[in-house]
Nucleic acid binder design. Structure first.
Length: 323
DNA sequence: CCTTCGTTCCGCCATG
DNA sequence: CACATGGCGGAACGAA
């Protein structure tokens, strides 16, 4: 028909009780993306098993059927009100089909549970909404759950934390596909400044009133404010009035990670903010966020973020009209 | 790249 | 009895 070869097809999966915010993020960010020549690189379609989808207070009329998933080069899976609700078999089959054909699959928030149910996250690092991270790790032990990052890019499979982190993930996708200039334009278009205020936005968000016999939040706050010091596991355990053994165990249960890994991610997150918002050189930032040496900082930065600190700053800056 | 040495993490098990 | 804690040891990991 009409030149579909140059269009990148995106299917946004609308399951029952989909979180409309997540759905909106997916549809808006990619749908609003424009290339330098004004063309729209993404053909975004919301797909569902049935024409009407419940979504909290509203019903959605969905125009495209689940079958369209097969044609998509990118599939986005938003969260659902009940993260652990069983996913219809036809949906899981469709996801498998898309993955087998090499489609990129990205989840937002607790949409990661759907990917997990499909087995697409086995053996991979992944993230989800921080309050659900422990549950995800418990239900799917083969997933390396990291609740302390905004998103995780495994190449074909991507996961992001809360809805706001979904913005970051999709802007990252745009940047990967079309470069940082296009991504910066998209960010402006959706009025989402590329500046994110540290990942700790995740933690000042609604504190869950749910039961918390052992609440790690105060300890995580303490790590947040002391990450720049040369902390050891013993230091953190002492702060929590726990043995190192118990701390490791509780941490794994409640967050899916280990204390030192959490600390490392906290440091990297702060380093990212400093790279974005200051002119301190990389070595100085390394020290400011608590790394023992610039070498280890670069090492960790690469494994967490995927690029070098210098390149990260460069691509971030290039998207801004000098500021 | 390697090598050395300290740290971290988790299974196991005794203890409360 | 169920359950949580934490010490021990060793494999894996990280720093330099």
């Amino acid at each position: 028909m009409s030149r579909p070869s140059s269009v990148h097809r995106v299917a946004v999966l609308a399951l029952d009780d989909v979180v409309v915010g997540d759905l909106g993020v997916a549809a808006e960010v990619l749908g609003r993306t424009r290339l330098a020549n004004g063309r729209t690189p993404y053909d975004v379609r919301v797909v569902a098993e049935r024409a009407t989808v419940r979504a909290g207070a509203v019903d959605l009329r969905v125009r495209d059927h689940l079958d369209q998933l097969r044609q998509a080069q990118t599939v986005v899976v938003p969260g659902r009100a009940d993260p652990t609700a069983a996913t219809p078999p036809a949906v899981l089959r469709a996801l498998h089909g898309a993955a087998d054909q090499g489609a990129r699959i990205a989840s937002i928030c607790v949409g990661a549970f759907v990917l997990a149910e499909a087995g697409l996250l086995d053996g991979l690092r992944a993230t989800t909404h921080w309050a659900a991270a422990g549950e995800l790790a418990r239900l799917h032990p083969r997933i390396d759950v990291d609740p302390n990052v905004l998103y995780v890019d495994n190449g074909q499979i991507l996961t992001s934390a809360g809805a706001a982190a979904g913005f970051d993930l999709l802007l990252h996708v745009v940047q990967r596909d079309h470069g940082s200039a296009v991504a910066a334009d998209t960010a402006r278009s959706v009025v989402m400044p590329l500046t994110r205020k540290g990942g700790q936005a995740q933690f000042i968000a609604p504190r869950p009133p749910r039961r918390d016999p052992d609440n790690l939040a105060p300890l995580l706050d303490w790590i947040e404010t002391h990450h720049h010091r040369p902390l050891t596991l013993a230091d953190i355990a002492h702060q929590a009035s726990m043995s190192a053994r118990s701390l490791n165990r509780r941490f794994r249960e409640l967050t899916g990670t280990t204390p030192m890994s959490w600390l490392r991610n906290t440091r990297i997150r702060h380093a990212q903010v400093l790279l974005e918002t200051t002119n301190e050189n990389v070595d100085a930032i390394s020290g400011l966020v608590g790394f023992g040496s610039p070498t280890t900082f670069r090492d960790h930065f690469r494994t967490v973020v995927g690029t070098t600190p210098r390149h990260y700053r460069q691509t971030f800056r290039s998207g801004h009209q000098h500021g």
